[in-house]
Design a protein around this nucleic acid. Structure first.
Lengths: 204, 204
DNA sequence: TATTAAAAATGAACGACGTTCAAATTTTTA
DNA sequence: TAAAAATTTGAACGTCGTTCATTTTTAATA
């Protein structure tokens, strides 16, 4: 589950890790828009041009960071799912949704960086796509329980819809540009929507 | 309902309008990331520095563009709402959601620009905030019909939740970076979620 | 160990960008 | 028509990501 480019010497791996940590620190403190090649190079004690021996370019850097963040998000969703296992499938989905919300709140800037990535080359590398799709893994079991008569494709579609809806609520809710919704109220809204959707699935 | 800064001469208004149109054309054709001050200045036949007599800076330009787009979106939502009026409130909300999805599809790049704005000064001007909040206007009547016993604040919260959820589905669905969901399937998913949410509201 | 070839690191330089501002030009006023 | 005010200009500035010829370090070989 390494996030570093393959074929690295030990020294390079250390540099890569230092770069990632310095970038994450800066994102957390100042937001993703404040990431500057010169700052990062200075942080890890490397000349400006040396950055490009560790990472192909800033897009590559962002994608590697996204990979790390998704790894942590995956673990958080997993923890949320198991905490509600052996319960009703709707409750598991609810726990996953709340875990997603909690992760976004606790890692606000890193989580935002996942979506604010504006890559020069919009085509994502395969390993990034797979990591994204892998996040849906936690919904498989509860979705299958909720929609036993449906096809795999149908379940995947509904899972994506549910995830997207929750993501939208979280994203808009954490946007401070408009009215700030109290966290507790937001969590309650997420639960309501997930429950309502699951109830409907159950009835049909 | 003017979108131009006040206290403009006739000439300035014409320049402003030309600037907006040229910017919108470029956004539609190449995406918001391709907007360059030099290109726009050339487009409207003005020296580079002259842009800053028409608009305070690029942030201001983006906010004015957003204002125009929101104006069109507002009209589209209104049209969607009236097309389903005198029906069940759930059907009105469904029509609004579908109108939102349709607008996003038909004005993909301009719609994206609404959210991809990364302003140097993240504080939004009051007129922009009001325009955003005004978009919820169309949900007032159906929400009141669906939740007659609830407070105004409660209804606003649920309306925001519903809108955010639909927005999330649309945003993720129109993101081509992952699996492309067929438009018809996406519309169906939106309808399903709105209906499920409304059904739950009705029962409680 | 000395020599040499390969690998890695350097930082000045480049082009693109948004923004500024003294100077030139146009328009308005007296 | 002359003076004053307003507008327009485009060169110049600072910042950014990125490149690459040069230097420095590391590794291999005799």
């Amino acid at each position: 589950m390494s996030v570093a480019p393959s074929a690295m010497t030990r020294r390079r791996e250390a540099q890569f890790e230092a770069l990632m940590q310095s970038a994450e620190k800066r994102i957390c403190e100042e937001g993703v828009g404040a990431l500057k090649a010169r700052d990062l190079a200075a942080d890890i004690g490397v000349a400006l041009g040396g950055l490009y021996n560790i990472v192909a370019d800033m897009d590559d850097l962002m994608l590697r960071l996204a990979q790390r963040t998704m790894g942590r998000l995956d673990a958080a969703l997993e923890a949320g799912a198991v905490s509600a296992a052996a319960e009703q499938p709707a409750e598991v989905l609810e726990a996953i949704a709340l875990a997603y919300y909690d992760f976004a709140r606790q890692n606000l800037q890193l989580w935002r960086a996942l979506f604010e990535m504006r890559l020069k080359n919009p085509a994502l590398p395969e390993w990034n796509i797979q990591a994204q799709l892998g996040l849906f893994r936690h919904m498989n079991a509860p979705m299958a329980a909720l929609m036993p008569a449906s096809s795999e494709a149908e379940r995947v579609l509904v899972a994506r819809t549910l995830f997207s809806a929750v993501h939208g609520i979280v994203a808009v809710g954490l946007e401070e540009r408009l009215i700030a919704v109290p966290p507790q109220a937001l969590a309650q809204q997420i639960c309501w929507l997930v429950r309502a959707a699951c109830k409907d699935l159950k009835e049909n």
